[in-house]
């Protein structure tokens, strides 16, 4: 199960993930993340503190977000990345794509 929380602040947009971002959850999460596409140059922070698991489907969502946000001048930051999550990001080369907070 996957739960997302979205918070719009003055300078940036924050989305917190809670649960498992697997293939089963990915289509709903994709819908949830659409709100981030309207970033308009504001930075985006993805809070992974409670993200227990991410599969390649989840990584694809993250990659899709970067491709949408960057041309608008927004940075995408990850925060609260656990060691296991970090390993997955490292193995797939995603560490280099994001900025870590």
């Amino acid at each position: 199960m996957m739960k997302t929380t979205f918070k719009e602040e003055k300078e940036h947009l924050v989305m917190a993930f809670d649960g498992r971002l697997d293939t089963a959850a990915s289509s709903q999460t994709e819908e949830d993340m659409r709100v981030l596409y309207d970033c308009e140059g504001r930075d985006i922070i993805l809070d992974c503190t409670n993200l227990q698991y991410i599969s390649s489907s989840g990584l694809r969502l993250f990659l899709g977000l970067i491709k949408k946000a960057r041309p608008k001048g927004s940075h995408v930051y990850l925060t609260g990345v656990s060691d296991d999550l970090r390993q997955v990001l490292d193995e797939t080369g995603f560490t280099a794509l994001f900025e870590m907070l």
Partner: peptide, 20 residues
């Protein structure tokens, strides 16, 4: 296999599964 050294813009969505 996916090329993990590419930048976000160059990356294709796909190929990550077998890599993982």
């Amino acid at each position: 296999d996916v090329d993990t050294s590419l930048s976000a813009e160059e990356r294709n969505i796909g190929g990550l599964g077998i890599h993982l």
